[in-house]
Design a protein around this nucleic acid. Structure first.
Length: 300
DNA sequence: AAATCGGGGTA
DNA sequence: TACCCAGATTT
């Protein structure tokens, strides 16, 4: 295989490819009979949600709605219930919009074109690149939180990447992608897998790492995170996100409209609750009929 | 560049 | 408790 890797780490890609081929997790969307649509669904579900939580939902989802055509016609309320507690339920709405665009504009086939993918609802830089690599076996620059960390350590010599993705990071990542499609797709999968399984954020398993000999962070003596001072933990308790989640949870659990008097019980701060309800309605995640709220239902 | 948007598992 | 997770979109 050809490689564009710089001379100072000549076989990072080769070592990771061999390791990945031998040890890759049998994730359901990696099955030989996977479809491009299934890969796309798995990537959207995995945006900020650990794959271990995604897998069972994905299996049920693909059984119910195996194609963009089937999913495009699904009742939105059922889609949101099936999404369950994966989080960020707007992703489910966008995924359905995405399916409808694929049906209407691409004959029901996921486009094998990165720019076309980028234009789809809910598909950003990472997901478009991931679909190109994992669904179509095409060369792309796949940079997720795992790849960022792996490159920050092995190449950059730092404990963790900067808080937000930088242009310099993307350039470095792009320079490391092999030239041919098959090698590039394997590099994407293996560099992500290393970050997910071995080169983890909390307690990296360096003893089990296939590229310790090439790791700049290890060579430097595992220096502490240089960006630690600029990281801030994300608040949760008492936020609108928590309140929105409680409202969504109540409506998912019900199989019909829920009286507003019942919704009022999910959160004690009436001002915050009504702001969150209004936001959910605005986002199309819930709807109001009379004095009750319910998951959205398509109107004729 | 910073804010917003869920929720559960883990140390 | 705090941190993290195959990010995208809007301001």
């Amino acid at each position: 295989m050809t490689s564009t890797a710089p001379a100072h780490c000549p076989d990072l890609g080769t070592a990771l490819a061999a390791w990945f081929t031998a040890t890759a997790r049998p994730l359901p969307w990696r099955s030989p009979d996977r479809t491009a649509w299934g890969v796309l669904v798995s990537e959207v579900m995995s945006q900020q949600t650990p794959v271990a939580r995604v897998a069972p939902i994905w299996l049920d989802w693909m059984d119910r709605w195996p194609t963009p055509q089937a999913f495009a016609q699904a009742p939105t309320a059922e889609v949101l219930r099936a999404w369950g507690s994966l989080g960020y339920p707007r992703r489910a709405l966008r995924l359905q919009e995405c399916a409808r665009v694929i049906v209407d504009q691409y004959g029901g086939e996921v486009p094998a074109d990165e720019q076309a993918l980028l234009a789809l609802p809910g598909i950003g830089t990472y997901t478009a690149a991931a679909v190109m690599a994992f669904a179509f076996g095409r060369r792309s620059v796949v940079v997720d939180t795992n790849v960022r960390r792996v490159l920050a350590r092995t190449v950059g010599g730092e404990a963790l990447p900067s808080p937000s993705l930088t242009a310099a990071e993307m350039s470095r990542a792009a320079a490391l992608v092999p030239a041919d499609d098959a090698s590039a797709a394997l590099w994407a999968a293996s560099s992500m897998e290393l970050g997910a399984v071995v080169c983890t954020a909390r307690a990296p398993r360096c003893d089990d790492c296939p590229v310790t000999a090439l790791c700049a962070w290890r060579a430097a003596g595992y220096p502490a995170d240089p960006h630690a001072a600029r990281r801030r933990s994300q608040a949760w308790a008492g936020t609108d996100r928590q309140v929105r989640g409680k409202v969504m949870g109540a409506l998912r659990a019900a199989h019909g409209p829920v009286p507003s008097a019942v919704i009022d019980l999910v959160w004690p701060d009436a001002t915050q609750l009504s702001r969150c309800i209004a936001g959910l309605v605005e986002d199309g995640l819930i709807a109001q009929t009379g004095e009750a709220y319910h998951l959205p239902v398509e109107v004729g």
